[in-house]
Amino acid sequence: MKHKTLMNWSGGKDSALSLYHVLQHPTMDVTQLLTTVNEAYGRVSMHGVREELLDQQAQALGLPLVKLRLPETVSMEEYHHRMAETLTPLVASGITHSVFGDIFLEDLRQHREERLRPLGLTGVFPLWKRASLELLNEFWTNGFQTIVVSVNGDVLDKSFCGRVLDADFVKDLPSHIDPCGENGEFHTFVFDAPYFSEPIRFQIGETVEKTYHYTTAEGTAITTTYFFTDLVPPMPIQ
């Protein structure tokens, strides 16, 4: 018997490679994608990719997409509430497993599993504890292509944003940066994959800088800067 499975889809390389593995798993049946979207701007959370390009990914995959819309600033309490509201009907439809692209962040995996358990969902982590360079080589070997769309300006400069993630990109990274950006150093958009019916087409737009202010649970004020490169869908042919 196959398990009905939900893919937590960011549109980036880690979720894309995780899906690649799960689609080949004999007991997993991926029936749904789930993506969080900034409701104020209509863009993928943290990645800044336009919703239209996200929709094109789902269409190229041939899988239905559920969007969890979140305000630009959201408390963890509100996030968990909205996530539970979104997941509950999916569980009622028969979904039992939820796939993530996490690689080595122990606290993040533990947090996810703790939130899934009361809903009756089992977390699946196909990339867990694999070496980042090994994952990238598998990604490239299987024909995936991805572009960096978001960069944490506290650890990388603007020049890394808007570049295709290839061997040259990795070579240019500072030695302390994880090649997969697992610590949030950068985020990507996959525009070609072996399971896409066709590549996702776009033009590279401007790169903008945004500063965020937030307070940790311990009350510490944090300021973080991000760079976002806009990917612009092609104009429809008249």
Rank of each mutant, 00 (worst) to 15 (best):
K2L: 11
K4Q: 06
T5Q: 06
L6G: 04
L6Q: 01
M7Y: 04
G11C: 02
K13M: 05
D14M: 02
A16E: 01
A16P: 00
L17R: 00
S18R: 01
Y20F: 03
V22Q: 04
V22W: 01
L23A: 01
H25T: 02
M28D: 04
D29C: 06
L34R: 05
L34E: 02
T35G: 00
N38Y: 04
E39K: 10
E39G: 06
Y41I: 08
R43L: 05
V44N: 01
M46K: 03
M46T: 01
M46A: 08
V49S: 07
L54S: 02
Q57V: 06
Q57I: 01
L63C: 08
P64Y: 05
L65D: 09
K67W: 07
L70Q: 14
S75N: 14
H80E: 07
R82F: 11
T96S: 02
T96M: 00
T96N: 07
F100K: 04
G101C: 02
F104H: 10
L105P: 05
R109W: 01
Q110L: 09
Q110P: 08
E114P: 07
R115V: 03
R117Y: 07
G120H: 02
L121N: 02
V124L: 01
P126I: 02
R130W: 05
S132P: 03
E134R: 14
E138G: 06
W140L: 12
N142I: 09
G143Y: 08
F144A: 13
F144V: 12
V148Y: 03
V148I: 15
S150E: 15
G153M: 14
V155W: 12
L156C: 15
D157S: 15
K158T: 11
R163C: 11
V164D: 11
D166I: 15
A167H: 15
D168G: 15
V170N: 13
S175M: 12
H176E: 15
H176W: 12
D178L: 08
P179I: 04
G181V: 05
E182H: 10
N183I: 11
N183R: 10
E185H: 04
E185S: 07
T188D: 03
D192G: 03
P194M: 07
P194W: 04
Y195R: 09
S197F: 06
E198L: 14
P199T: 06
Q203R: 15
Q203G: 14
I204L: 12
I204E: 12
E206T: 13
E209D: 08
E209C: 05
K210D: 12
H213A: 06
H213K: 09
T215E: 11
T215P: 08
T216S: 15
G219T: 04
G219I: 13
G219E: 02
I222P: 12
T223C: 13
F228P: 03
V232Q: 09
P234Q: 12
P236C: 11
Q238G: 14
